[in-house]
Design a protein around this nucleic acid. Sequence first.
DNA 1: ACTAACTTTGCAATAGTATTGCATCATTTT
DNA 2: AAAATGATGCAATACTATTGCAAAGTTAGT
Lengths: 139, 139
Amino acid sequence: MTKDIEQRLNRKNIKPTAMRLLVLDFLMQQNAAISLNDLEKGMGPSDRITLYRTLKTFEEKGLVHHIDDGTGTTKYALCMEECDGDHHQDLHVHFYCNSCKETFCLPNTKIPQMTLPEKFRSEEMNLVIKGICDRCNPD
Amino acid sequence: MTKDIEQRLNRKNIKPTAMRLLVLDFLMQQNAAISLNDLEKGMGPSDRITLYRTLKTFEEKGLVHHIDDGTGTTKYALCMEECDGDHHQDLHVHFYCNSCKETFCLPNTKIPQMTLPEKFRSEEMNLVIKGICDRCNPD
DNA sequence: ACTAACTTTGCAATAGTATTGCATCATTTT
DNA sequence: AAAATGATGCAATACTATTGCAAAGTTAGT
């Protein structure tokens, strides 16, 4: 079972250490984006800074992307497999639920094309929508 | 001259103290969004916390809105006059220039309507575009 | 297998932003 | 004029993010 986890690291040129296998495994079990704190609590006892750097490494290599959802706490989520690691702030929307306080990727909701004012050139975009997520919505 | 500044405060039900007049005056002179630090430096010697709370008050009353541009430092900018103070995370786009590191409101660039997945309900949206602003663009 | 070079990990420490508590001063109300 | 309310200033704190450095682990060359 660790095999696919290990391969996933290899495919991104990340040396598969024990720590990294554990972190990736944990990340793959999440359905919402998680903060460093969540990771620290969710994993067995492990050093916070190492976890921090593990996430950093994963991000540099294009395995995860971080989400700034406006809460002041950075969240992390796995990238799509095909993400190439450069501009993976990709074009999908992030959703923060005001009720359950979870942050989700909406991989199928893309940021629409937009015309900027004269001479502005866009390099990355970050769209966070806040509201009520599907599971918290009573309708 | 302070008259219109004072009136602007009054219109938003903000008691026009000396401090607040100064802060609003300063804000009106900016063409980019500013951080608490910018404000502190730009004003004469004044207490950082008071400035912080002044901005908070302005925000609650719908006079300014804050912008989370992903730099980790919250920026503030004046709202349009007609902003009613409730959902003033309005629908305009914010732009962060990777070159001059300034953050701007693009009041005429609105966030397009978008279809969310089933049962997701949107309450606010925050779109930050990063790139090169008009003044830094050589073209 | 052994050492050198490099990478990862863990602990300590620091930086910076955001935020609250409390006492003082000012302003408005009765 | 006293009481109540709001604003200000200082001190202190809470967090998140980040760096330095030394120890441990891994890889490569001989």
